[in-house]
Amino acid sequence: MALKIRLSRGGAKKRPFYKIVVADARSPRDGRFIEKVGTYNPMVTVESGLRWTLDEERVKHWLSVGAQPTDRLVRFFADKGLVAKAAKPEQTKKPQPKAKAQQRAKDEADRAAAAAAETASAE
């Protein structure tokens, strides 16, 4: 049985409130769970202590048993010191223009360099 530590959404429309739960990975997001280990209220300011509440001992227990936290919770648990901070993925290369556009840009750069060299030699 694969266990996940994840957020389960509650609250009203446009006023979310999340429970931090341990659940079977196959169960629905807001469905059946094994244990509630905390809450998250995104409507409260960041400075407030009520934004996140967490039973750290239970989280440590579930992590030791093999429960996998979601990406959002990994970031939060890393701030609390419960898990190692996840490494950021490498930046991907920016998309390059097609071959004709690259050739056109190269030709323009060559012309500009030749014009600059010509004006420099004329002076």
Rank of each mutant, 00 (worst) to 15 (best):
M1D: 13
M1F: 12
M1I: 12
A2V: 15
L3E: 09
L3D: 04
K4A: 08
K4S: 13
K4W: 08
K4P: 03
I5W: 01
I5Q: 02
L7K: 03
S8K: 01
S8L: 02
G10I: 00
K14S: 09
Y18P: 04
V21N: 02
A23F: 06
A23M: 07
A23C: 13
A25S: 14
R26F: 05
S27Q: 15
P28V: 08
P28G: 08
P28Y: 07
P28C: 05
D30R: 08
G31C: 08
R32S: 13
F33H: 15
I34S: 06
I34T: 11
I34E: 11
K36I: 05
T39K: 01
N41Q: 06
V44S: 01
T45W: 01
T45F: 01
V46M: 10
S48V: 02
G49C: 00
G49W: 00
L50F: 03
T53D: 00
E56C: 09
E56T: 11
E57P: 00
E57I: 06
R58L: 14
V59M: 02
S64F: 02
V65F: 03
V65K: 07
G66N: 09
G66F: 04
A67G: 10
P69S: 09
P69E: 08
T70S: 13
D71T: 14
L73A: 08
L73E: 02
R75W: 06
F76K: 15
F76A: 14
A78C: 04
A78R: 06
D79R: 15
K80D: 01
K80I: 09
G81Q: 05
A84V: 09
K85P: 00
K85M: 06
K88Y: 00
E90N: 10
T92I: 12
P95H: 04
P95S: 09
Q96E: 15
K100R: 10
Q103F: 09
Q103H: 05
Q103Y: 05
R104S: 10
R104N: 09
A105E: 15
A105Q: 13
D107W: 11
R111W: 04
A112S: 14
A113H: 11
A113L: 15
A114L: 12
A115D: 07
A116S: 13
A116R: 14
E118F: 06
T119D: 10
A120H: 12
S121M: 14
S121T: 11
S121V: 04
